[in-house]
Amino acid sequence: MAALVAYAAERFVTVVPEIDLPGHTAAVFRSHPELAPADAVSIDVGDGARFDLGALNPGRSEVWAFVENVLDAVIPQFPHSAYMHIGGDEVFGMPEEALIRIGT
Results as ranks from 00 to 15, higher is better:
residue 4 L to Q: 05
residue 4 L to N: 04
residue 7 Y to R: 11
residue 7 Y to D: 11
residue 10 E to G: 10
residue 11 R to H: 13
residue 12 F to K: 15
residue 12 F to Y: 10
residue 12 F to H: 14
residue 13 V to W: 03
residue 14 T to D: 07
residue 19 I to G: 09
residue 20 D to M: 06
residue 23 G to L: 01
residue 25 T to I: 08
residue 26 A to G: 14
residue 30 R to M: 05
residue 33 P to L: 01
residue 34 E to P: 04
residue 35 L to C: 04
residue 36 A to F: 00
residue 38 A to W: 04
residue 39 D to S: 13
residue 41 V to N: 09
residue 43 I to P: 00
residue 43 I to T: 09
residue 43 I to R: 11
residue 43 I to G: 01
residue 47 D to L: 12
residue 49 A to Q: 15
residue 49 A to K: 15
residue 52 D to G: 07
residue 53 L to Y: 06
residue 53 L to W: 04
residue 53 L to P: 01
residue 56 L to R: 09
residue 57 N to A: 13
residue 59 G to A: 15
residue 59 G to W: 05
residue 60 R to A: 14
residue 61 S to G: 06
residue 62 E to G: 07
residue 62 E to R: 10
residue 67 V to L: 09
residue 67 V to F: 03
residue 68 E to L: 12
residue 70 V to L: 02
residue 71 L to E: 02
residue 75 I to Q: 04
residue 75 I to V: 13
residue 76 P to I: 00
residue 79 P to Y: 08
residue 80 H to Y: 11
residue 81 S to G: 00
residue 83 Y to E: 10
residue 86 I to D: 01
residue 87 G to D: 09
residue 89 D to T: 05
residue 93 G to I: 03
residue 95 P to K: 08
residue 95 P to N: 09
residue 101 R to P: 02
residue 102 I to V: 05
residue 104 T to M: 09
